[in-house]
Design a protein around this nucleic acid. Structure first.
Length: 441
RNA sequence: GUGGCCAUAGUUCAGUUGGUUAGAACGCCGGAUUGUGAUUCCGGAGGUCGCCGGUUCAAGUCCGGUUGGCCACCCCA
């Protein structure tokens, strides 16, 4: 009989334990950080009416949606980010939620785009947002969350680049480029990638005069410390109310970040970042890894004026960001920052003689109740094989009890990395092991 | 969506101008005076060369299609 060929769809992947342990660890870190700032978890369906998801991110995202007709003849689509479903969610549950409302949402999203490294058709986003407030304090807190998250994840040094759409818009107003703002910002976003000349060319192709384009670029290419930049830019937008507001917000943001102790090296004012999506209206954030900038932003976000305008007349301003879990994971894998363990077990209890299996199960259960992750070897094989198994899986400690230990009421505790082993009284075992390996994650 | 590169054991790769039973390393499994692994020694199992079709006496090798991966554009996490 011919077999079905085992295969996965383009851009969709299986995860082996080694990768999955890292994924779950990352997700747990994100949850811990979000919760420590008071964000509450929510979830929404993977599938929504297409009309709900359409029309927010523009034509490009519409094309990227997995869309089909269900068995009840409904036009449905897989969610392609967590923001649009959240907008629907917020509009629908506003009265129960109250504002300001802070939520986090870890969820899988689907995009039918062409896959590349760090870009998949199915991937997990870790979003957090604060809605129902225009306060700059929420913007500042968003920055702090991003920093805390990246710091805790531990994938090397990183840089959070901040900008403010109001500053850009203020400048564009002064240059009378408001009409073309979308194309100007799109072009500007590419500056680090394609360089000044190419951006100039692109802008001139968009009915923007070269004088205007040069002024925009001169602005975007200003360099210096955040404080210096702000002073320079303030002069460029002076007299424009929008621009001045943006400057004030950024100034406060950097001041607070400073007094809270965020390292200056990790925080930058980058006037060239504009974010592709047009719905951002205030502060915007992008996060790059120092060791792997090419993989793109791993955590991005910004402030928007009205999250749910498609669904309700109640205005819902907010600010938030999204951690790209799978992209980050791809980066960590490339940088060799993943732990090689392929099991959550911390301890392997060997079975010296099949007749004594019950003893191994008994001590394992006792240790689990102390918060350890414990596995009992299930095959009747000799000691060497049992150690080999532990070593291969990355289990750091094994327990052995033969005749001598049984009569003495002890277990041999063997640390595989060093080969050292010591007999420990059964009563002291849990404390001893906890000190060695710590509690389960 | 447009353009380009790639596809051989679990993994990383060899494979000579198309020419007999397709190789290596690592990994995996088993064994080396049965209370000790990761180092050493010996042995073994894995591939219809991604898939389908074509050219040819002969295809892993050439051609077309298809699936998947990667890169650029686009866009984005």
């Amino acid at each position: 009989m011919s077999k079905i060929k085992p295969q996965t769809l383009k851009g969709f992947r299986d995860f082996l334990p080694e990768t999955m342990l890292a994924r779950e660890h990352l997700m747990q870190t994100a949850r811990d950080v979000y919760r420590s700032f008071g964000f509450a978890p929510i979830d929404t369906p993977a599938l929504e009416y297409t009309e709900i998801l359409l029309g927010k991110g523009g034509e490009e995202s519409d094309k990227q949606m997995f869309r089909f007709t269900d068995q009840g003849n409904r036009d449905v689509s897989m969610r392609f980010d967590l923001t649009v479903p959240f907008a629907r969610f917020a509009a629908q549950h506003l009265n129960e939620l109250g504002t300001p409302f802070k939520r986090y949402h870890l969820g899988t999203v689907w995009r039918a785009e062409k896959p590349q490294k760090g870009r998949y058709r199915e991937f997990v986003q870790c979003d957090f947002d604060t809605i129902g407030t225009k306060s700059n304090a929420a913007d500042i807190e968003t920055l702090m969350v991003i920093h805390e998250l990246m710091d805790r994840i531990g994938c090397g040094e990183f840089q959070i680049r901040v900008n403010n759409r109001k500053v850009l818009n203020g400048l564009l107003q002064k240059l009378e480029l408001t009409e073309q703002s979308v194309s100007v910002l799109r072009a500007l976003d590419k500056l680090p990638k394609i360089g000044r000349d190419a951006v100039l060319a692109e802008m001139e192709g968009q009915s923007i005069s070269s004088t205007q384009a040069i002024q925009v670029l001169d602005f975007a290419e200003l360099t210096g410390t955040p404080a210096e930049l702000l002073t320079q830019v303030e002069q460029m937008v002076s007299g424009n109310e929008t621009g001045e507001t943006g400057i004030a917000q950024l100034r406060e943001l950097f001041e607070v970040a400073n007094s809270v102790g965020l390292p200056e090296s990790r925080l930058n004012l980058d006037l060239s970042i504009a974010r592709g999506l047009d719905y951002y209206t205030g502060t915007i954030y992008e996060t790059f890894l120092d060791e792997l900038p090419g993989i793109g932003s791993v955590c991005s976000g910004g402030r928007y004026d009205n999250l749910a305008e498609l669904f309700t007349s109640q205005p819902l301003p907010g600010v938030g960001a999204s951690l790209g879990l799978d992209r980050l994971l791809a980066a960590m894998e490339e940088l060799g920052k993943l732990k090689p363990s392929s099991t959550p077990s911390q301890i392997l209890v060997t079975v010296f003689d099949p007749a004594w299996t019950a003893d191994s199960f008994r001590i394992a259960q006792q240790l689990r109740h102390s918060g350890l992750a414990v596995e009992v070897y299930t095959d009747h094989k000799k000691m060497g094989k049992q150690f080999q198994y532990a070593d291969k899986k990355g289990i750091p400690v094994v327990l052995i009890a033969g005749e001598d230990e049984r009569s003495a009421g002890t277990w041999q505790v063997k640390e595989l990395s060093s080969g050292d082993q010591t007999p420990i009284l059964e009563a002291d075992l849990a404390d001893h092991l906890l000190e060695m390996v710590g509690k389960t994650d």
